[in-house]
Simulated scan of single mutants.
Amino acid sequence: MLYAQILLNGLVLGGLYATIAVGFSLVWGVLNVINILHGSFVVLGSYIAYFSYVHLGIHPYLSIVTAGAVLFVLGYCVQAGLINRVVGAPVLTTLVLTFGLDLIANNGMILAFSADYRSVTLANPLGSAIIGGLVVPLDRLVAMILAILLTGLLYFVLVHSRIGRAIIAVRMDAEAAALMGVKVKRIYAITFGIGALMAGAAGSLLSLVFPISPLNGPEFLGIAFVVCVLGGLGSVAGAVVGGLALGAIQSFGALFFGPQHGLTIAFALLILLLIFKPSGIMGRRGYE
């Protein structure tokens, strides 16, 4: 029963990890840009949820709309105004640019909000329920369900909308897409905006689980990296599988080796996966 409870806790957390990673994976797969700024986007989404709840009484479940919208606009402007200028350059150039932007964003949030940890304390939490002998934290469970629904919505948009098909076309062959009339740089900006939107929504949901501080940015970025490699770059389903796998690995790693080593175990397995199966669990050519 203990192992079942640990697995349940890991899967609930893993659903939230999937939402962190899917936007990161989308930007990396379509633009070939490793967005170091992604972790700060997640933290900013958490701050939007925190202040929305404290000052306006808006529940973090609802703040995903506000956080997503704000981060989409921010991501679109960053891509259109800065990254699009060097998007065709070697990957190291965009890596350094997003690293510099992350430093600016991180220090800006420290100046604005300080590095103190804050947390969303709900006035009327849902509490826990006992199902089949397992303790189910309902607030986290609802957050995980919303995270998976958001990821599924992104998949639906990519597959069934004109913008989604344009994103896939640019992912497969940007030059051919341009010849077919697709405005590639505009699609790049929209894609980056969607990645930021997913990060902001994930941050809003994670505000119910993690303390909020600008210092969390690198941790969220590391999670995004691990999930992308575990699940496979270029797959929405891979992000979900990778997120769930990481959540389970962390939970069992914390049980057997201590909570301080949970993420360390995940990174060790990541290295092994890179050696023996670098495409990840569900990696494939082209974004779904």
Score class of each variant (00 low, 15 high):
212 I>W: 12
270 L>V: 07
61 Y>D: 07
56 L>A: 15
274 L>V: 14
121 T>V: 15
206 L>R: 02
31 L>I: 03
106 N>H: 13
179 L>V: 06
39 G>F: 04
91 V>T: 14
101 L>W: 10
226 V>W: 00
37 L>D: 07
264 T>S: 12
58 I>T: 07
59 H>A: 08
93 T>I: 15
71 L>D: 03
176 A>Y: 02
257 F>T: 11
184 V>G: 04
111 L>E: 10
152 G>F: 11
285 R>V: 05
227 V>F: 09
269 L>P: 06
232 G>L: 10
192 F>M: 12
63 S>E: 11
274 L>R: 12
144 M>E: 12
7 L>W: 01
181 G>Y: 10
86 V>K: 02
234 G>I: 01
237 A>M: 09
193 G>P: 08
141 L>I: 10
272 L>F: 13
37 L>F: 14
51 F>C: 05
68 G>T: 13
114 S>V: 12
236 V>P: 07
277 K>P: 05
43 V>A: 14
10 G>Y: 05
76 Y>V: 02
286 G>L: 01
153 L>E: 00
271 I>H: 03
43 V>R: 04
130 I>A: 12
90 P>N: 11
162 R>C: 07
145 I>P: 00
253 G>E: 05
114 S>W: 04
133 G>S: 05
59 H>S: 10
46 S>G: 13
98 T>S: 08
284 R>A: 14
75 G>V: 01
94 T>A: 04
195 G>P: 02
167 I>W: 05
210 F>G: 00
285 R>S: 14
140 R>I: 01
264 T>Y: 07
158 L>I: 10
280 G>P: 07
29 G>R: 02
124 N>Q: 14
150 L>M: 15
71 L>H: 08
264 T>R: 00
15 G>P: 01
192 F>N: 03
107 N>T: 12
125 P>C: 06
184 V>A: 02
78 V>M: 13
205 L>R: 02
237 A>T: 13
196 A>C: 08
46 S>K: 00
117 Y>C: 00
70 V>Q: 01
112 A>H: 10
152 G>A: 15
280 G>C: 08
189 A>G: 08
164 G>D: 02
45 G>V: 06
200 G>H: 07
77 C>K: 06
166 A>T: 07
68 G>V: 11
138 L>D: 08
149 L>I: 15
105 A>C: 12
103 L>V: 13
257 F>C: 04
63 S>V: 02
249 I>P: 06
272 L>M: 14
2 L>Q: 15
138 L>T: 13
